[in-house]
Design a protein around this nucleic acid. Structure first.
Lengths: 339, 339
DNA sequence: TTATGTTATGAAAGCGCTTTATGTTTTGTA
DNA sequence: TACAAAACATAAAGCGCTTTCATAACATAA
């Protein structure tokens, strides 16, 4: 484990020159530069991270906190998101620091101890205290999602409103009028946006939303199963359902199977699909019609944005919204005639 | 953002005393200590991470590298593992540094730049080069899994041999003689151990393993589906199957459903279950009989081991093997009579 | 020649903490 | 009362880098 001082002595140069050579300063003679780099490689020299951090004030790492780590409800979306994020960061040898959430204190700790250069926030709530606090501390961060239509911080989001508008429209064009919405809890902005998209299509077509068909709860397999059970038991199963998550759809499908209801014929399903590599909607018993937006891409984009941010990009350059793609497969069909 | 120097001046004490007070040295007067801590809290003082790292040589972080991050085959087990790991580390305000894999170079970089105090390695291969290299560099690490029965490094593993022995025995006791094994690739030690467990039961009962029923491939949903398809098409479907992963089982089930084959009656299944929170084997259409060992617990245990290791625990204290639990549910039944 | 740039390097000052070596005060004991 | 031991506080030396400022060598222009 050789350090800069030793390397400099070995080369008969000052630490300063060696450091500048390694950091590719234009002021150092290219011959010297080459000599330094060669020696560094030969001796396996690697700059000590902490020392560099202390000197530059940059850590070369970004932070993310694991949502509710000891909660048994761990989100499988997170791996895909992480995969995208780290792959984007790896290009520049940057790392991701993962912390288990101890509430907002974790964010505060990460920010105040200068462990990371910036944070990424996932699943923002309406009027999220984390955002307020980081904004007040003037600590850089990027939000995956947003708290209102056009917020004044860096974010990456998909157009949830448009996606669910498209999905609802598709179902209606197929003749469906009774459409259940299996959504996430209404304290998340994405769920609200999706709900709005759904409602607005009803409004545009002069129809009225049946509140008994709108569900807002944790988007788990179990809940998908439970909600469909509930609808079947109450004999209120609509002709179509719109799911905010492939996990919900998985559970719904399980219930349909139990009841002998054929998806795509007896009931139509459109699901949102985050493109999880472990849950492929094209491989469902009946391939699923989805609004698709791979969460891995979101991770990648946010990774790039973090890099831009640390290079001084302005807030307005760091606000991105992408569209989800409507993929029509076999789970949607014409509404069955009323019995 | 106040620093130690300023805090010391504010208190009319030297930096040394303040530092020692904050680090709870016994040599500092308890009254002073209290005064210092109070002031630190009041002023929101937090020690700068890089500076502390540089001074102590400890980073307070452990590293893990994401397996094949740009490969679309992202393992859903990883989130659960991470959740366990970070929750154990959070107790001591330790963090996890995540890097995308660029092969062994990533491990080298993490180790030589002193970005982390130790590494955790997942999914070791036979004669894994990462292990060899870290051992040679004398850099601390803990392996999730192992490369042989009793290796000379720190590891945490489950008793795969025993688990699959138990599973095979259970199936045989139910009268099954034709048992397919859907396993992971044979370059992983766990897959080999499971295969050995499976074989040994055959041996003990004077039976011979049919190599046409043994499959070693990536443990994906798709492969589960494909392998069962293959068996059905060749008219070689055995009465029982043993799966190395719930994902494989998921795919197998999909194929059985397509074929109208009833799990638990027409065919018995035992699966290994890593207790993924997003894939509950008790919620399968037919609740699954499994050898269960939650990967989240493994993460937690490894987290604790990392802490022990950094406190100087010896290698022998850092070698743990736990047993998987055999949970019998509805997917196993008596072997159907031969037609 | 002298003045003025250019280019390439070095000396040394930090970055903010921990810890060793050192000094000063208080307490206990003969 | 004297002196050793304990208790407390400080000054200062690093930890290994980056970067500012100064300087030397050399070329160019006047």
């Amino acid at each position: 484990m050789i350090n800069l001082k030793q390397l400099a002595k070995h080369l008969n140069l000052s630490q300063a020159t060696v450091s500048r050579a390694l950091n590719n300063y234009s002021t150092v003679n290219s011959a010297t530069k080459a000599r330094v780099i060669e020696a560094a490689n030969a001796l396996g020299y690697r700059a000590n991270t902490s020392a560099r951090q202390l000197a530059t004030g940059k850590t070369g790492a970004f932070g993310i906190v694991l949502p509710a780590a000891d909660n048994l409800l761990m989100d499988p979306h997170f791996v895909d998101f992480l995969a995208g994020l780290t792959s984007a960061l790896a290009v520049n040898d940057l790392d991701l620091v993962l912390s288990a959430s101890d509430g907002i204190a974790t964010y505060r700790r990460l920010a105040t101890t200068r462990k990371v250069d910036a944070l990424v926030l996932s699943a923002p709530k309406l009027d999220d205290p984390r955002i307020r606090e980081l904004l007040a501390m003037n600590f850089p961060f990027i939000v995956h999602g947003r708290t209102d239509r056009k917020p004044d911080y860096a974010y990456f989001d998909i157009d949830n409103y448009k996606a669910f508008k498209d999905a609802t429209r598709l179902l209606m064009d197929l003749g469906h009028q009774e459409i259940a919405l299996l959504n996430g809890t209404q304290d998340s902005v994405f769920a609200i946006d999706r709900y709005r998209g759904y409602c607005d299509v009803f409004g545009q077509r002069g129809l009225v939303v049946n509140p008994e068909l709108v569900f807002a709860d944790a988007m788990t397999e179990e809940n998908g199963y439970r909600i469909i059970s509930q609808l079947i038991d109450a004999n209120k199963l609509p002709t179509a359902i719109l799911c905010s998550s492939a996990l919900l759809t998985l559970g719904a499908n399980r219930r349909f199977r139990d009841a002998g209801i054929v998806v795509g014929r007896d009931v139509s399903i459109v699901s949102h699909d985050d493109g999880l590599s472990s849950l492929k909607t094209e491989n469902f018993s009946v391939p699923l019609t989805v609004t698709r937006s791979p969460i891995r891409i979101a991770g990648q984009e946010i990774g790039k944005m973090l890099i831009e941010q640390s290079r001084g990009a302005s807030i307005s350059e760091l606000q991105k919204v992408v569209q989800a793609e409507l993929v029509v497969r076999a789970s949607t069909g014409a509404a069955p005639r009323k019995k």
